[in-house]
């Protein structure tokens, strides 16, 4: 068992355990806590997989941004401290069983597939982003150039680079932000009737 495998095992276990804890937790903030652990561990897995930029993005955007947003949501929508909205036991059991079944199905299919030969880390494939620092090639690909494929900008940008998707995602994000802030504006509040927890 190599060091990398050890670290992988640790983080994978943390990831899975926290994910299951998310499912099991009853209060939302605990769920959020476990989710943070899970996503953080996932980020560590990304680092292990030499995807350091993705891992950093995961940390910054997911954990630092999205989850804070979620916790905000929790607090803004909480009608009492440590609010719990329970699920019936039967439902939980059924969901759990089906989840297990699903997990089995996924396991079976994942292990049943004969994937292409794994690429091992070598000096040759560092530049492809398979191994090593990927920041520069990622940035270039977002600018429409794929140096590792030997394509310069303007030569065959449409087929290789990610300039257009990058722009689309940027605009999409802007639109979403505007839309979300519009949606979430404080508006009239419903008359509190039959408040049921």
């Amino acid at each position: 068992m190599s060091g990398e495998a050890f670290l992988f095992t640790v983080f994978a276990a943390m990831t899975c355990f926290s994910a299951i804890a998310v499912v099991v937790s009853q209060t939302v903030v605990r769920m959020a806590f476990w989710l943070v652990i899970s996503l953080g561990s996932t980020a560590a897995l990304f680092f292990l997989a030499n995807a350091d930029f993705v891992g950093a993005a995961q940390l910054l955007i997911y954990v630092g941004g999205t989850l804070v947003l979620l916790v905000f949501g929790v607090m803004l929508t909480a009608s009492g401290p440590y609010m719990k909205i329970g699920t019936s036991t039967g439902e939980t059991v059924v969901a759990g069983l089906i989840g297990l079944l699903f997990l089995f199905v996924v396991f079976a299919s994942v292990s049943g597939v004969n994937w292409r030969q794994p690429v091992t880390a070598s000096a040759d494939n560092v530049a492809t982003g398979a191994v090593g620092n990927t920041l520069r090639p990622l940035g270039l690909s977002f600018l429409g150039a794929r140096p590792e494929s030997g394509v310069l900008p303007g030569e065959d940008a449409a087929g290789t680079g990610y300039l257009l998707p990058f722009e689309i995602v940027s605009v999409h994000l802007l639109v979403v932000l505007v839309g979300a802030s519009y949606l979430a504006r404080a508006k009239r509040r419903a008359v509190p009737v039959n408040q049921v927890v």
Binding site: D52, F53, A56, G64, N133, L135
Partner: peptide, 15 residues
Amino acid sequence: AADCGLFIILAILSL
């Protein structure tokens, strides 16, 4: 010595 060191440090601080 990460290539995106600044990015990582900002991400971690945000946690």
